[in-house]
């Protein structure tokens, strides 16, 4: 079974209680596949209970990348979260665990 990690890389960023994940294919020809398959709904479902708010997807064809902006997703926000990884820095690798065809 393949994972997103086999075909793409990702970086996690934070702003308050918003988690931001990029998704960038290693090969340009996989970009369209990601656009077709990796929807905001799929990402919200995959990441599970931590994503309490809406997930908005941005498509960036100039750099062949996707971005997922996940609202209400860092506990109570970076500064007051009880989580060990309050910033969600490791969440890029949670996204890359998603199984793909």
């Amino acid at each position: 079974m393949r994972k997103l990690a086999n075909i793409a890389h990702s970086r996690a960023g934070d702003k308050g209680n918003i988690l931001i994940l990029s998704l960038i294919p290693f090969e340009e020809e996989d970009f369209q596949y990601l656009v077709n398959e990796i929807t905001a709904e799929k990402v919200k479902k995959h990441l599970g209970v931590q994503i309490k708010g809406e997930v908005v997807r941005y498509v960036l064809p100039e750099i062949n990348a996707l971005q997922f902006t996940c609202f209400d997703s860092l506990g109570t926000g970076v500064t007051t979260s009880l989580a060990q990884d309050a910033h969600g820095k490791s969440m890029s690798y949670a996204l890359l665990e998603m199984k793909i065809k």
Binding site: H9, S10, R11, G13, D14, K15, I18, I20, S22, I24, Y58, L60, E62, I63, A65, Q67, T69
Partner: peptide, 25 residues
Amino acid sequence: KEQLLYEVIDPQHYITPDVVADFSS
């Protein structure tokens, strides 16, 4: 590419005190 999108909520509207920058282009 990874750094361009880092901590950017909306790539078409990156708001600073100086400008609302468009990173999508």
